[in-house]
Design a protein around this nucleic acid. Structure first.
Lengths: 210, 210
DNA sequence: TTTAATTGACGGACTGGCCAGTCAGTATAA
DNA sequence: TTATACTGACTGGCCAGTCCGTCAATTAAA
């Protein structure tokens, strides 16, 4: 094999990693980090356990890599749907819908994230907000553009962003708990109606909070 | 001992359970269900491991009891703050604030709930929505009252409730991740401003979503 | 009242099972 | 023949739950 076919070697590594990550996603999302066994992951991947440890240093690294691959796909998927939309409100709408749609198609990632929260507090502490989705800055820009353009109220941008993502995460989580009926994106219109315009109808009362 | 001192026996049971639950809260919230060892819980409680198993069937039952005690206290705490407030909007405001304040004082419960999500999917599936906080019905009534009274828009009540609780849960979670700076209830005014009146400023755009 | 018997709370050493990670040996491809 | 991808039996450590001995408190007997 020598120095010969570097491309082939890279291709093999890629195949094996993908094979293992697919299996890991299945087993980890179902059983959680602790109860999942590397033996089963190896079996599902149709590889020996030693091979798994050839491509991933330990169980923790494998878990993290599994989550990361999911989040990368999420980010790509949203960017693709949002690309080219300039109007802030429309972009928020499209992004939110893409977010829900992605999880509707990839429910295992929901469980992975729940398990990650429970097991890897420290990692999340360091990475979540600035780096996790690699999207915070982009969202800040959208919101600021909306504010300077007079579309959006002059609220604290980070809080507004966190509120929107919390609503979306919560909806995804509830969709999972309730047995994955329908599609999570079905509720997008109610969600955005509330996030964009609030629940209060009465004008006088509304002004008290504006 | 005979039929004599039933009260004393009950008192002992109560003391021991409280002792164990306090220790369990500390250890479980810090280490999660799997990594926490019953040996350490026993040590922290200053009891032998055998004694822990005298009062709780197994590790799982102990964990659940720990969460349940926390949730009962949460419910009591909110009800006390909300009692006597008739106006729906004011009641939502007071309840939301009480919710955040409680977790600000009891951050260990946040971690317990995160670990519970990760470990006991089935329990949550069955209990969360109708029974978990024992509060869903109460909240439904408040929102319906607001709608019939013309204060609140005629949105789907359950979705509106889930959005509000998701926002609050998310804020608590972020407060934890960000290192518990300040108090989680500090952001209550921005949260309610958005939940009550939305983020859109521009009237024309607003009408598109109403 | 004193002493003996009984009860049951308590402790913690022990066991059986599980599993992450290793490593010596095998298969395969160059 | 050689290099390396692969395998899975094995090991060492961990820990939930058990179980029996201990001891303090209570009751019965003397």
């Amino acid at each position: 094999m020598r120095t010969k076919d570097k491309a082939k070697i890279q291709a093999l590594i890629k195949t094996r990693k993908a094979q293992i990550l697919d299996a890991a996603m299945l087993v980890f999302s179902r059983d959680g980090f602790n109860k999942a066994s590397t033996d089963e992951i190896a079996n599902v991947a149709k590889l020996g356990k030693g091979t798994v440890y050839r491509y991933f240093k330990d169980k923790k690294e494998l878990f993290i890599a599994t989550v990361d691959r999911g989040l990368d796909r999420l980010k790509d998927s949203i960017l693709a749907k949002v690309d080219g939309i300039d109007d802030p409100l429309e972009r928020i709408e499209a992004g939110s819908k893409a977010y829900l749609t992605f999880f509707g198609k990839n429910p295992a990632l929901i469980d992975m994230m729940i398990h990650e929260q429970s097991e890897f507090k420290e990692r999340i502490k360091k990475q979540y907000f600035e780096h996790y989705y690699g999207s915070i800055d982009r969202m800040r820009r959208i919101f600021r553009k909306g504010i300077t353009g007079g579309l959006i109220k002059n609220v604290d941008v980070d809080t507004a962003i966190s509120i929107l993502t919390n609503i979306l995460n919560g909806q995804i989580y509830m969709w999972r708990v309730e047995g994955k009926k329908g599609f999570p994106e079905d509720k997008i219109s109610v969600i955005l109606k509330i996030f964009f315009t609030g629940v209060i109808k009465d004008e006088k009362r509304r002004q008290k909070y504006e």
